[in-house]
């Protein structure tokens, strides 16, 4: 159904399907909305002469696909996730540490001023 990939899939059914790319498996399993492309339209868009010589449908292969460390969000995003907000309310701090703090054996109280 167009634009309605809201159905949540069983990952075990998708895991080894050769015709579904791993990136797509993760999207479907997480029930993320997949935007349908407008490939069905018959009208060809006008193209610049410069675009004629450009390679199409070429995947970026320069990326290192054999790396050890995962990719992390930017430092700003991480700071927002794990730091208290400036307005003296520690809601964001709470959300970032909410699940994590229970894992530390000596979790501190959030309102500790020390």
């Amino acid at each position: 159904l167009k634009g309605s990939v809201q159905r949540k899939w069983d990952i075990n059914k998708l895991l080894y399907l050769d015709n579904v790319e791993p990136e797509e498996v993760v999207k479907r399993w997480r029930a993320q909305i997949v935007e349908e492309s407008d490939d069905e339209s018959d009208i060809e868009e006008e193209e610049d002469d410069g675009d004629f010589f450009k390679k199409r449908d070429v995947k970026d292969t320069s990326k290192d696909l054999d790396q050890f460390a995962p990719e992390y969000p930017s430092i700003e995003e991480l700071k927002n996730k794990f730091n208290p907000a400036d307005d003296n309310s520690d809601e964001e701090y709470e959300s970032g540490f909410q699940k994590l703090k229970s894992r530390f054996l000596a979790a501190p109280k959030l309102n500790d001023t020390e």
Binding site: Y72, P73, I75, L78, K79, G96, L100, R103
Partner: peptide
């Protein structure tokens, strides 16, 4: 300083 801060946040992210 930037390196120490970044790696510490990345550790928290990995733990989460």
């Amino acid at each position: 300083e930037d390196l120490g801060e970044r790696v510490a946040y990345e550790l928290l992210e990995e733990l989460s």
